[in-house]
């Protein structure tokens, strides 16, 4: 088992009252899963994903990632955990505009203190694998949306994480580009990468092996 959530809740204080974004979520993920989280706007999809990605802490409940209790360990260890094992893909790509494709890909490796020879090799591999060698010196603004998202995925994958978290990865793309991105995910899943995606679209949902439906913070 890659991760497990037990009775997880998330709330915010608003006007002296607790407003639940997530309530009593129980949920587990095995290695190699491709999970789609579905639900209408405001149902808590992104909150759940951010919690799993450790960008945000749950208010209550237990969260185990690779048998480590995420809800009790220190910030530093938690950062280490997600740095090592989780890659993020965002709806609006979140590439750094001032860096070229190649430099964007390098960045996670720099923070993980890879040696420069290793970085070179990994970047070259990744550029090759995603067929973007020709674009390595371009800036994000010079790429189409689909290409930018491809770079985003490549960046998420470059340090070989166990888990990819994708928050509406095709939300800003047209249908053809979206399909290509989803194809890429499928390919990755086939070679063993665990993927959790948040999506609105039934079509994208179909790529996943398991679906979790959220409504008003509950799994339905």
């Amino acid at each position: 088992m890659l991760l497990q959530l037990k009775n997880v809740s998330k709330w915010v204080q608003s006007g002296g009252q607790r407003v639940f974004l997530l309530k009593d979520i129980n949920f587990w993920v095995n290695e190699g899963d491709f999970i789609s989280i579905m639900g209408p706007s405001g149902s808590g999809k992104s909150t759940l994903l951010n919690g799993i990605g450790m960008l945000d802490a749950f208010s209550a409940g237990e969260y185990a990632f690779l048998d480590q209790p995420v809800h009790t360990i220190k910030e530093k260890q938690r950062a280490k955990l997600y740095k090592e094992h989780i890659g993020f893909v965002f709806q609006s790509y979140h590439l750094i505009d001032e860096l070229t494709v190649k430099e964007n890909l390098e960045m996670p490796l720099l923070y993980k203190k890879y040696k420069s020879s290793q970085i070179k090799a990994l970047v070259a591999d990744t550029l090759d694998r995603f067929n973007i060698v020709g674009k390595k010196d371009l800036f994000p603004s010079q790429l189409s949306g689909g290409q930018q998202q491809l770079v985003g995925i490549a960046r998420a994958l470059i340090a070989s994480p166990k888990l990819i978290l994708a928050d509406e990865p095709t939300g800003n793309l047209n249908s053809k580009q979206g399909e290509e991105i989803m194809e890429t995910f499928t390919q990755l899943n086939k070679v063993g990468v665990t993927i959790i995606q948040v999506t609105h679209s039934e079509k994208n949902m179909a790529y996943g092996s398991r679906v979790i439906n959220l409504l008003d913070g509950h799994i339905v």
């Binding site: 990605g53 960008l55 740095k83 993020f88 979140h94 750094i96 960045m107 923070y111």
Partner: peptide, 15 residues
């Protein structure tokens, strides 16, 4: 945005 992105990619406060 850049700061956020860097943080998700593993940058610490110190970085």
């Amino acid at each position: 945005k850049e700061i956020g992105m860097r943080k998700t990619l593993g940058a610490t406060k110190k970085h």
